[in-house]
Design a protein around this nucleic acid. Structure first.
Lengths: 248, 248
DNA sequence: CGAGTGGTTGACACAACTCAAACGATGTGG
DNA sequence: CCACATCGTTTGAGTTGTGTCAACCACTCG
């Protein structure tokens, strides 16, 4: 399975690909049955905007397959992506009713949705959900702060390498292993979407990817299919001091 | 009361300045008594590092008075501040035992601490605490994402203006009102700490502050005492499209 | 009074941005 | 089936905002 797989038929919770990683990860059979009863699926095509900043949000959701971005746009059009959503990531905030960001599908996307009100009520009586959500939110906060270091202090080349590391890790985690040695993955983002996430222009992104290719850090087939011959080399280029523990 | 006030004698929870804004905000008298029994205070001087990244953390804490920063440092010394902690903000993550960031007091600081284990146990049986912590963590995530926009897309001048807006807002929230018209506050950060938070060099910070002064957006007495004659003007300079609703 | 700390200002360099041209892949209509 | 438009991308040439290096100022402390 990769980030781009065709959408599976709406799965039963029991054999859902994100059963043990999403908000529902710690639910018992009874709790799962309750979620199962209230869930509904929505699918989107690559490029579609699911939610506009300022919209009323009457549901929360988990990404089942595909990738989406959270982006902020300034009045004059400057755009910054503030979150990448991979399978199992959660969208929406209990207790808030308007969306603070645009949510955009960058690949075909399947979401598992819950109407907000019933979900909030379930959260009230189900610590297994609210504690898992707290844990996931704390993880996202850590990720956001790591991204602040990237945006504030890394060079364009380090930024690109760091993004590739993130994508490689999230892709690997779908297969339940850590990236090591020679790895291959698909980029779920256009050059422009990468630029918006990295705080760069798309030209700079393109140039730095070309440079990493020229230097043998990566190989490309087409624009999206990336091979990293030596993952540790990519890690060095990313300039991270730690290796960011693997979460299965 | 300002961000810099001398430390009060260790207060009783009932008349603690952050009684209705910290993790304990929603606790009833009984829950408060439990927290009261297990809490202890620690104070720090401006400039002190409370916690080093990688250290074992056996407590969590709330800022009672003063300001602290969370900072990340790369191997080569590049430094990025990833969080500003004002009174009522929470430090430490239940369920993790080593600190991911340096925590540094930028003013004299009073912390209300809880040993991690007992606090976690109390959280298990006290939804009023864990729900409040979830809410605060979601707020912090929003703040981190707003900062990502700043780091990725704003100019140096906009960055400075934005920081001043944040400090003005947090300072005002201690007095339970929103900033408006002519306002006055103390900067709780050195130029270097500002640079680390804004992803700039201290020279650029200094130049842009001089420029804002020259243009009449701010007035300075000494290096730290700031007067903003027209708060809306500062907001324009910050380049934010929304006015970031007031939280009392 | 000298040393140290935090801040300001200047001169210059360079990484990344802007503007512009062109490419390959894909799709569409005559 | 070819001409043509579009989209995402690459590459080049020139500009600029911010970083770097360095001198100097204002205070404070011992």
């Amino acid at each position: 399975m990769s980030l781009h797989d065709p959408l599976p038929a709406a799965p039963n919770c029991g054999d859902c690909p994100i059963r043990y990683t999403a908000v529902c990860a710690r639910c018992d059979v009874d709790e799962l049955a309750q979620l199962d009863a209230m869930k509904f699926y929505r699918s989107f095509e690559a490029g579609q905007t699911l939610i506009w900043s300022g919209d009323r949000m009457d549901f929360v959701a988990s990404v089942v397959t595909g990738v989406a971005t959270l982006t902020q746009v300034m009045e004059d059009g400057r755009t910054q992506t503030v979150g990448l959503l991979f399978p199992s990531d959660f969208v929406g905030r209990p207790g808030r009713d308007t969306a603070p960001y645009n949510v955009i599908a960058t690949t075909d996307l399947l979401m598992c949705c819950f109407r907000k009100k019933p979900f909030e009520e379930l959260m009230e009586r189900t610590p297994n959900v609210s504690h898992r959500l707290l844990e996931m939110t704390l993880d996202e906060l850590d990720a956001a702060r790591e991204w602040m270091l990237l945006l504030g202090r890394k060079t364009a080349r380090e930024k690109i390498a760091s993004l590739l590391v993130i994508v490689a890790r999230r892709d690997a985690s779908l297969h339940l292993h850590a990236p090591r040695g020679r790895i291959v993955f698909e980029l779920p983002l256009t050059r422009e979407a990468m630029a918006d996430y990295l705080g760069l222009t798309l030209e700079t992104v393109s140039r730095q990817i070309s440079a990493l290719k020229r230097d043998g850090v990566i190989e490309l087939e087409g624009k999206r299919h990336v091979t990293v011959p030596v993952f540790d080399r990519l890690l060095e280029e990313a300039g991270d001091d730690d290796d960011g523990g693997f979460v299965g």
